[in-house]
Each structure stands twice: as C-alpha cells, then as structure tokens.
C-alpha cells in the first residue's frame, strides 16, 4: 500500500464551498481559507473548480522568491512563506502557474495551502479532502483511487514549453496522459456563445 496522496476530480465538484468553509477552520488559518474555488462563468454554467496548492516537485514559487521564504518539506509539501523572511513582493503570486499563492496585505505575508501540514504530517487527512461531500477532493492511496474511479490520476502538466510535475493529482479521462495548458484567446461575443450545450433554452428548442 502506497502512502496517501491528494486527488482532485473537477467533474465531481458541486461548488458547495465546504472546502473553503472547512479550510478557514484550520487552527493556523484563523478564519481565512487557503483553498480557492473558481466559479468558471456562472452566467453560462454551474461549473466550479477547486484549487489547492499542487505542491510542485520543483516549485517555481520558491525558485522566484528573493527572500528564500518558501520551503518544501522532505515529504514534498510546499509551505506558506516563512513570516520572518517574507517581504511581501508577490513574485510567487505572479509566477505560480496554478494561481495558488495569495498575498495578504493585512499580515504582509504570502499564505497558501500547505495540505494541512499540521494534520497530514500526523496521519490525518487534509481538512478539505475530509469534508468534501462530492469526492472532488480526496486524500487516499493510489490503489484506492484506481479501484474506485473510472478516470486516471495524472500529475504532469505542460504550460507552453515548461513541464511541471506536481505532488497533487487530477483525475482525467483514461486517454489523457498530460495536461497541456496553452494560451487561448477567449472570445465572448454573443455569436460565439450560440452553441453553448449548457444553455437550457437551446435544449428546449424542439419543445
């Protein structure tokens, strides 16, 4: 049995915000959530996407930090900035390909998801992955995920030409091996939205 890992399945997310509410309860967060829940475009869809820190093998946030304030634990968890070192420059905020670190002006420090290190380092699951009602966030073993899910977990991303490997996995359809994230120009003119398969009015057109 391998050790437990973190898996995100965006297709399961129902946008309930349990993860945010529970994350804020963490003793070290003092009422502020470190997980982000993106509502993609509420006018078009109810699709939402939770975003925890992906805990990159070679975290770019740490690489670009001029104060050397972001450390990775031996077990691969990328921590929030160290309070005495963080200079609040926000290099990490701008460099993270997943948009995870946030600069908090009121404490002049970057804070981000640390996979509930106080819990996960003593054998408990991270809070968000414990409470998540839909199983969009799960903390379990690779064997268990392979046994219970139809998709496959991957942790290799390609942003333009840069390949990023992460400690956190996302569930994807079986044929996908790597997630390629390219820049696309999004057009939002009304004509571009005509074929929206999630428009209830279009579903009813034959009625």
């Amino acid at each position: 049995m391998s050790e437990a890992a973190f898996f995100i399945d965006h297709s399961r997310c129902i946008g309930c915000q349990s993860c945010l509410q529970a994350c804020a309860e963490c003793d070290t967060h003092r009422g502020v959530s470190m997980i982000h829940l993106e509502t993609i475009q509420r006018s078009d869809s109810v699709q939402t996407a939770p975003q925890v820190c992906m805990h990159c093998e070679d975290p770019i946030c740490a690489r670009v930090c001029p104060a050397d304030a972001i450390k990775k634990t031996p077990d691969g968890v990328v921590q929030s900035s160290l309070k005495p070192r963080c200079i609040g420059c926000s290099n990490c905020v701008m460099s993270c390909p997943f948009g995870v670190p946030k600069y908090r002006a009121e404490i002049d420090q970057m804070m981000k998801c640390d996979m509930c290190y106080d819990r996960s380092s003593v054998g408990k699951k991270p809070m968000c992955a414990t409470v998540c009602p839909s199983g969009a966030l799960t903390f379990t073993t690779m064997e268990e995920i392979q046994r219970t899910r139809s998709g496959i977990p991957i942790n290799t991303w390609k942003f333009g030409n840069e390949v990023v490997k992460t400690k956190v996995y996302v569930m994807v359809p079986r044929e996908v091996e790597q997630l390629n994230v390219d820049l696309v120009q999004i057009s939002s003119t009304p004509t571009a939205l005509q074929d929206d398969p999630y428009d209830v009015a279009l579903m009813l057109e034959d009625a």
Partner: peptide
Amino acid sequence: APITTDYLWQAREKGAKLIILDPRMTPI
C-alpha cells in the same frame, strides 16, 4: 443533500447512467 452527491458519483464511476428532472440545471 450534498453528501448524497458522492453516492451518485460512486455509481457513475461504475458506469451508472444518471437522469435528472429539474427546471434548473443544478450542479448534479
């Protein structure tokens, strides 16, 4: 009944088909 979502998704992982009746497209 958010917790019930996981029961639906567990069934779907095994190939179950899901039919939803609702005037609104809810998250499920």
